[in-house]
Amino acid sequence: MIEIKHLRYAYPAVEGQEPAAVLEDVDLHIEKGSFTAILGHNGSGKSTLAKLLSAVLLPSGGEVLVDGLSTAEEKNIMEIRRRVGMVFQNPDNQIVANVVEEDVAFAPENLGVPAEEIRARVDEALAAVGMEAFRLHAPHLLSGGQKQRIAIAGVLAMQPEVLVLDEVTAMLDPEGRREVLETVHRLNRERGMTVLLITHHMSEVEKADRVIVMEQGRVVMDGSPKEVFPRVEELRRLSLDVPGTVDLLYELRRIGWDVPLDALGVDECADAICKFLQ
């Protein structure tokens, strides 16, 4: 689906400054239909990576292939952008129109889709995020979570293969965050949508198939949540939190309890502790 080979990226040099590489030798393969979470503290290059995937930025070295199409080739750019739906942090800054359905129609309009099909795609995309009832509302009057779901519908209308979500929940309250995550997980489960979720919130990562941890433009950990989170000390060194459950189990192990570190879910964690106590 997405193939990243020896990717290197440096932002254009600012006067009087060395152009430092923001991404260095990144090699990744994203499976079709997978749910991948990308973690990393501020400035580790997550957003830069996301922008390279949708050809907003072009590699300084190496290459990014989306379904075999290289982002470096001018003629592929539109097709790549159609296949890679990007949603950003601030919903206000990605909504183009004053009416929900007109905003969702923006991408298919750009793609030159005929009017009747735009209508169908808009209805479909709004249904997919559960916002059909708000078709004629003004986006600026909606809640943060609702706005972000509109933004997701806006890229779904392109019928993309991958959803890349760059800290889409960072500006939302817990309710909005839950709304958006549920939507994304449902799209992944029911439609087999490939999802790449960039986030700071550990709780959003537990249910991912795969976790990638980035540090200073490199991939430093890569594996399932059960493989990555037990590496508590390493994660702490990268100034990342671990999920509450893992934190608890880790502390229990420090006082000598023999509990597994990879019980991520609350129930699972409780079971593990009960088992030890028995």
């Binding site: 922008k51 739906g85 800054n93 990605q94 183009v96 298919p108 750009n110 808009v122 806006g154 392109m158």
Partner: peptide
């Protein structure tokens, strides 16, 4: 940010656009 978001939604000027 809006410009980036518009680009990501395949905006490339008025050429070949259709309307809802």
């Amino acid at each position: 940010e809006l410009a980036t978001a518009m680009e990501c939604r395949c905006y490339s000027g008025g050429e070949g656009r259709t309307k809802l």
